[in-house]
């Protein structure tokens, strides 16, 4: 009887160890606490709830915390440092975290990947997220921006780094340049074929059309230049309108126009960030 009880206990302990040990990370991250920290008050309650639900669900699938942090001024701190301190306060465990941080005062936007997410959410992925999100931010559609960020991050996290062809942070620019030419249609052979056929078709048609002789008179042939002229003209200025738009991010001079950074927070979380303006 005793022996049997002891056996049961061992099984129970083993089971507990198994359950708490293996999926420890899962329990430590998702579901635990909020994901949306909207200090700048950019979202309505309903929007916030929706996004919260989405962040929780997507985070669980990827075993990653997808956070959104907004602030209206960061006490003069750099956005990455501010975010790092924020993470230090909330997370003791070194779990994978992806953060979209906004500073409404400086109009900085930064995508940060903490701990293990640094590997899975490399620079080109972060740049990709910024590229997609910034237009929404510029347009003032914050819900759209956050929604896009969550969806896209979830999707990108699902692609293993080795399958995501774009290299990770810190690689030399030439690797990034190499990936460009195949994307341009001007270097595609089928594009050359189409252009060649069009050029040949137009040229031959013109040759055939002109084989019967060309019209060689123009508007000046029969014009009497001595008497033909503008008798009266007026150009009255009425009004003017000015529209402005943001300069597109300059893509030349490196893999991207976005800034980047990384390091370790005082709480020991390692992180990499990619940032831009909106």
């Amino acid at each position: 009887m005793m022996k049997r009880q002891a056996g049961n206990w061992i099984v129970l302990i083993l089971l507990i160890c198994l359950f708490t040990g293996l999926p420890k990370t899962v329990f430590a991250l998702s579901g635990a606490g909020p994901h949306i920290f909207d200090e700048a008050g950019l979202l309505t309650e309903a929007e916030k709830e929706e996004l919260e639900e989405l962040a929780a669900r997507l985070g669980k699938e990827r075993e990653t915390d997808f956070l959104i942090i907004t602030a209206d001024g960061m006490d003069g701190k750099d956005i990455d440092r501010f975010t790092g301190e924020f993470i230090d306060r909330r997370y003791k465990e070194k779990v994978p975290i992806v953060v979209l941080a906004l500073d409404m005062e400086t109009r900085d936007v930064s995508v940060l990947a903490f701990n293990e997410a640094r590997r899975d959410f490399g620079e080109t992925k972060r740049e990709h997220v910024l590229e997609e999100v910034i237009p929404y931010l510029s347009a003032g559609d914050f819900y759209g921006a956050f929604f896009t960020y969550l969806q896209l991050s979830h999707e990108l996290m699902g692609i293993p780094p080795e399958k995501w062809t774009v290299p990770e942070q810190g690689t030399a620019p030439e690797t990034a340049v190499q990936k460009e030419p195949p994307e341009s249609i001007f270097t595609q052979w089928w594009f050359h074929v189409i252009v060649s056929l069009v050029v040949a078709g137009v040229t031959v048609s013109l040759m055939a059309y002109n084989s019967g002789g060309r019209v060689t008179v123009n508007s000046a042939t029969y014009l009497n230049a001595n008497t033909s002229r503008v008798l009266n003209r007026s150009d009255q200025y009425l009004r003017k309108t000015v529209t402005k738009r943001r300069k597109p991010q300059n893509k030349s001079g490196g893999p991207s126009g976005f800034g980047g950074g990384g390091g370790m927070t005082s709480g020991g979380h390692t992180f990499s960030s990619t940032r831009g303006k909106f």
Binding site: L223, S228, V230, R233, T243, K247
Partner: peptide, 27 residues
């Protein structure tokens, strides 16, 4: 034109009038 982080598009409107005499001879 560009200024700072922005690209400005300025459109000026004009009311334009033309009065033209044209002679085509020996058509």
């Amino acid at each position: 034109y560009e200024s700072g982080d922005y690209i400005y598009t300025e459109t000026r409107y004009y009311d334009v009038f033309r009065d033209i005499n044209l002679d085509y001879v020996k058509v």
